[in-house]
Amino acid sequence: MSHNDEIDCSGMSCPLPVVKSKMKIDTMNPGEVLKIITTDPGSCKDIPAWANRVGHEMIEEAEENGKYYFLVKRGE
């Protein structure tokens, strides 16, 4: 699945991945997809919780070589 923008939060701990993702997705348009990359294991639950709470759609979650990838579609 393609994405419109990307933010790399590798090496960042709570709450930075969520806060940085929020700031990034705020600059995008509804319906556009943000790719988020993290290394913090806590973000596996935090990113979906954040997206669900604010009305963004979790499209994909994956783990590869110690990194976590998320595709989040911006809500209205």
Binding site: C14, P15, V18, V19, S21, K22, M23, A49, W50, R53, V54
Partner: peptide, 11 residues
């Protein structure tokens, strides 16, 4: 500050 910034990020 951690909880406040997170909550604000969650609107």
């Amino acid at each position: 500050f951690i909880l406040a910034s997170t909550a604000a990020a969650m609107d």
